[in-house]
Amino acid sequence: MKVVLFCGGQGMRLRDYSEKIPKPMVQLGYRPILWNIMRYYAHYGHKDFILCLGHKADYIKKYFVNYDETISNDFVFEDGGKAINMLKTDISDWRITFLDTGINANIGMRLMQVKEHLKGEEMFLANYSDGLADLNLNAMIEWFVEQEDKVASFVAYQPTQSFHVVKKQDNGIVQSISHIGSAGLFINAGFFVFRREIFDHMEWGDELVSEPFQRLIAQKKLVSWEHNGFWASMDTYKDKQVLDDAYAKGDAPWEVWREKMG
Rank of each mutant, 00 (worst) to 15 (best):
N106L: 10
H164Y: 06
L14H: 04
G262K: 09
N228P: 04
L135Y: 03
H43A: 11
G102L: 00
K168L: 12
H227M: 03
N138P: 13
E142C: 09
S224M: 14
A189N: 04
T236M: 09
G250D: 00
E207I: 12
K61W: 02
G229D: 01
Y157E: 02
S153L: 06
D16Y: 12
G190Q: 01
V174P: 08
K119P: 13
Q10V: 03
L5W: 07
R215W: 07
V145W: 10
L125K: 00
Q214E: 13
D244C: 00
Y247I: 11
Q161H: 12
H43F: 13
H179Q: 09
E142N: 13
A42R: 03
N36K: 14
R31Y: 07
A126G: 04
G181P: 03
E197A: 13
R13Y: 04
Y247D: 15
I141N: 06
E121L: 07
R110F: 03
I177K: 09
Y237W: 07
G190H: 04
S92Y: 09
V242C: 15
I187P: 06
F124T: 14
R39L: 06
F144K: 04
N127S: 14
K20M: 08
P32Y: 10
L118V: 10
D245C: 09
T160R: 10
S153C: 13
W35V: 03
N228D: 08
K168Q: 11
A246F: 03
L111Q: 03
F144T: 01
E116D: 15
P32I: 14
N171E: 09
M112E: 12
G102C: 00
M86L: 12
G54E: 08
A133V: 09
G54H: 02
D200H: 05
V26R: 04
T89A: 10
D58Y: 05
K62D: 08
Y128M: 07
A139E: 15
C52G: 00
V26E: 01
H179M: 06
E255V: 00
D100G: 08
V76Y: 13
Y247P: 09
M112G: 05
Y63R: 03
I33P: 03
W225N: 02
N138M: 09
G229W: 12
R196S: 10
F49A: 01
S153A: 08
G131L: 07
Q161W: 10
G229L: 03
Y237N: 15
E226W: 05
E142Y: 06
D149V: 06
S92M: 05
T160P: 10
F77R: 03
L118S: 03
Q147D: 10
R13V: 06
E203L: 05
V76M: 14
G108N: 01
F186G: 04
D251M: 05
K249Y: 08
A152W: 07
S129H: 00
W143D: 13
Y63A: 02
S182F: 15
G184P: 13
D149F: 01
L208D: 02
T97H: 10
E207R: 15
Y128P: 04
